[in-house]
Write a protein that binds this DNA or RNA. Structure first.
Length: 105
DNA sequence: CATATGACACTAT
DNA sequence: AATAGTGCCATAT
């Protein structure tokens, strides 16, 4: 089996998020069996060498806040709205838009 | 190897 | 509810 670097796995999962849906740093960390690595996930996405290939703008905070973005949080929000996601006061309804990764085991 | 940084999360106040 | 303080992980230096 091929072991991919942490950021590599993050990009892979992130690229799976369909348009109009979002995920969270925590969810990704969990999918990688590292529930406490949410921060590390953010770090990986921040570098994001696969800019257009990986929809990093679809990854938000677990509390529903948009979070940060290398190009400016503002931009992130604009894109998400364009994707059809309703943002209320810089917050996103996770119950509606959260995309769940396939439980891999 | 030690310290510092960051697109986070949780708990206590 | 909003603000601080603390914990955690992966990188960069």
């Amino acid at each position: 089996m091929k072991i991919e670097s942490f950021p590599q796995q993050v990009y892979k999962l992130t690229s799976l998020i369909p348009r109009g849906r979002v995920s969270t740093y925590l969810a990704i960390a969990r999918a990688l069996n590292n529930p406490k690595a949410a921060r590390a996930v953010g770090n990986a996405l921040n570098k994001n060498p696969y800019a257009p290939k990986v929809p990093c703008h679809r990854v938000i905070r677990s509390n529903g806040e948009v979070g940060g973005f290398a190009n400016g949080t503002n931009k992130k929000i604009a894109i998400l709205k364009k994707e059809g996601i309703i943002i209320n006061k810089g917050r996103i309804d996770l119950n509606k838009y959260l995309y769940e990764f396939k439980a891999k085991k």
